[in-house]
Amino acid sequence: MNILIVADALELFKIYKDTTFSMMREAQRRGHKLAACEPQHLGWQRGRPVTATVREVALTGDKNEWFRVEATREVPLREYDAVLMRKDPPFDAEYIYATHLLEQAEREGARVVNKPSALRDHPEKLAIMEFAEHTTPTLVTRDEKAVKAFHAEHQEIILKPLDGMGGMGIFRVGADGLNLGSIIETLNKHGTQTIMVQRFVPEIVKGDKRVLVIDGKPVPYSLARIPQGSEIRGNLAAGGKGVAQPLGEEDWKIANAIGPVLAARGLLLIGLDVIGGSLTEINVTSPTCFQEITEQTGFDVPAMFIDALERLVASGQ
């Protein structure tokens, strides 16, 4: 296969943990050819197909100079067997514009993973609301009074922006409501931005589990991201400790209920965040934790993903 990776700059990758890097490494090991670009390298000129200025790359195996550029050229996206959209959030206007260009490339014959329209239709925090039976009580609103009423009902709550990542902007408010008004103002920008509020799940002390689902099938191990010290956030970017562990009964139940539904919509890879048996987020843009799970358990997550990608390409869908 010829594979194009649309992601952040390769120079910014932390290859000791980067999931996109692990995908590239497994793909090259199987003899597939790799190219990479950033969203700003996509273009569409009237009367022409969507193209990208790409770098054709090969992985070197060196930890420092881990890739070499073999050529740089402008290529129609439809010439690739697969285009992997792996750009990290923020899920902002530029991200949405990129999905529109990728969707046009699909109409021209490109195969894009995850499907661009599905990326737009499943904002990572809002997507859980479709699966209410698996979530903790949750409110999405701009309204300060609604947030305060939710707090009065549930006493201990978590507040977070809809466009955050890596644990950024997450606040916990206890039963005393200390600083609740100020936190609401900070997050909702005096009623101009929508936020998410959830009942606090105390099982966070045991970890915020990342459950990966590939082509509708759960990876049998999760990565429990355990908060350290006085932190309430388990996110690795916020200093959480990642511990791989077999999926529990509730993890399997949630993954088997949601995975096939979203796979049918063109989401080949998703990452479910589960705390104490409650679904808290569905990651669709660039789910991570491949390397941590593989290194700690021996289960080859990148191989499972490339297997699924090869099946998709072979199917012609």
Rank of each mutant, 00 (worst) to 15 (best):
K253M: 08
I157K: 00
H41K: 13
E11F: 03
V112G: 04
V261S: 06
D176N: 11
N114T: 11
L12I: 12
F67S: 04
E74F: 07
V261M: 11
A255I: 06
R30D: 11
V301R: 05
G248K: 01
E144P: 06
A35K: 03
A71H: 11
D300C: 10
H122E: 08
E11W: 04
A257I: 05
G61H: 10
E56H: 14
V75K: 08
K63S: 14
H134K: 07
T194Q: 13
F21D: 02
N235I: 05
L119N: 11
I282P: 00
P123N: 09
L279P: 03
L12E: 15
M168Q: 12
P287E: 09
G177D: 02
A7Q: 03
M129Y: 06
H154L: 04
D307V: 09
R233E: 05
R29D: 13
P90K: 08
I232M: 12
L309E: 05
M129A: 14
N179Y: 11
H134S: 07
V211A: 00
V211I: 14
I270A: 01
G240F: 02
P39Q: 10
I15M: 07
F13A: 11
A257Y: 07
Q317C: 10
A36N: 10
I96K: 08
R225L: 05
P246I: 06
Q104I: 13
